[in-house]
Amino acid sequence: MAENRASVYGEGVPCWVDAQLPDVEAGKRFYGELFGWTFEDWFGSFAQALKDDEPVAALVRKVDGRLPTVWTVYFATPDAPALARRIRDAGGQIVSAPVPAGELGVTALVTDPEGAVFALWQPEEHPGFGKRHEPGTFAWAELYARDTEAANTFYGDLFQEALFGEDADPDFGRAPVSDVFPTQMPPHFLVHFAVEDVPTALEDVRRLGGRVQAPPFETSYGEVAVVTDDQGASFALLRR
């Protein structure tokens, strides 16, 4: 099963997301109620989220209080060290060099030339999402950049097949930071989760202690609202 799942995530396809949180147990309560997730605890500080018994995300305990409380998107690759070198050569940075994550795969943390952070995933026993594009699962990642033309060039060169190939069905786009956020906001990726109804989901976010950063707005890929959880991690709700 893992081998079959891995085959659908070509290089440059978003294949996983995780949240770095100060309190994983609080995260379980928030996201469990919001999205109907259940959880498997791994390695003490890592909880894998399941939707209908399929892996959809992870919550990870933040070990350094100086690190941001964030959702991170992972892009699939068959060779994380080689992709990390290409990213560096294209003007990006390697924040954390490729390292094995047990028997699950190989991971690295990198940035694009503007500093937007994303991760790489070279799958072994853990191929990535078992379910996506359904309510309560990953649906999209939007890069909010200062220079969208430069971003298109950088990611287009890295992930040509995933973005522009014959069978491309990309799960991420690029937009100016100022479209949604204050102009001083750093470039970043925003992880989107699918919901059946955005206003209802916003009510749930507020009830659970989160807040609304940007009320619903229309995009080329659906209706979106930007929110934070009760620990400050930002994400988006998307109804296609």
Rank of each mutant, 00 (worst) to 15 (best):
M1Y: 11
M1Q: 13
A2C: 00
N4H: 12
R5H: 06
A6C: 04
A6S: 14
S7N: 13
Y9G: 04
G10S: 11
E11F: 03
G12N: 07
V13P: 04
P14V: 13
P14F: 05
W16G: 01
V17G: 01
P22V: 07
E25N: 11
A26E: 14
A26K: 14
A26P: 01
G27R: 00
G27L: 03
K28R: 15
K28W: 06
R29Q: 13
F30I: 06
E33R: 13
G36Y: 04
W37Y: 09
W37D: 06
W37S: 05
F39K: 05
Q48H: 06
A49L: 08
A49F: 04
D53R: 11
A57V: 06
A58R: 03
L59R: 04
L59F: 07
V60A: 11
V63C: 00
D64H: 05
R66C: 01
R66D: 15
T69H: 08
T69F: 03
T72M: 10
T72Y: 12
Y74W: 12
T77Q: 07
T77C: 06
A80I: 04
L83K: 02
R85T: 15
R88G: 12
D89F: 03
G92H: 05
Q93Y: 02
V95E: 13
P98A: 07
P98E: 11
P98I: 08
G102M: 09
E103R: 09
E103H: 09
V106K: 13
T107E: 09
L109T: 15
L109W: 03
V110E: 01
D112F: 05
P113C: 10
P113M: 05
G115W: 10
G115L: 07
A116T: 07
F118T: 04
A119P: 03
A119R: 04
W121M: 03
Q122M: 04
Q122S: 00
P123C: 12
E124T: 08
E124S: 10
P127I: 12
R132T: 05
E134K: 12
P135Y: 09
T137Q: 02
F138A: 01
A139Y: 00
A139T: 00
E142A: 07
E142S: 12
L143A: 06
A145P: 00
A151E: 08
A151W: 07
T153D: 15
G156P: 02
D157M: 13
L158V: 08
Q160D: 14
Q160Y: 13
L163F: 08
G165Y: 10
D167H: 14
D169G: 08
P170C: 11
F172S: 02
R174Y: 12
A175V: 06
P176V: 02
P176W: 01
V177H: 12
F181Y: 15
T183I: 08
M185N: 09
M185E: 15
P186R: 11
P186A: 14
F189V: 00
V191M: 08
F193I: 11
V195F: 11
V198L: 10
V198S: 03
A201V: 06
D204F: 00
D204E: 14
V205F: 11
V205T: 12
R206E: 15
G210I: 00
V212A: 05
A214L: 01
P215R: 06
T219D: 10
S220D: 14
S220A: 15
G222D: 04
G222I: 05
E223S: 13
E223H: 10
A225Y: 09
V227H: 01
V227E: 03
D229Q: 04
Q231P: 00
Q231K: 00
Q231A: 10
S234V: 11
R240K: 14
R240C: 05
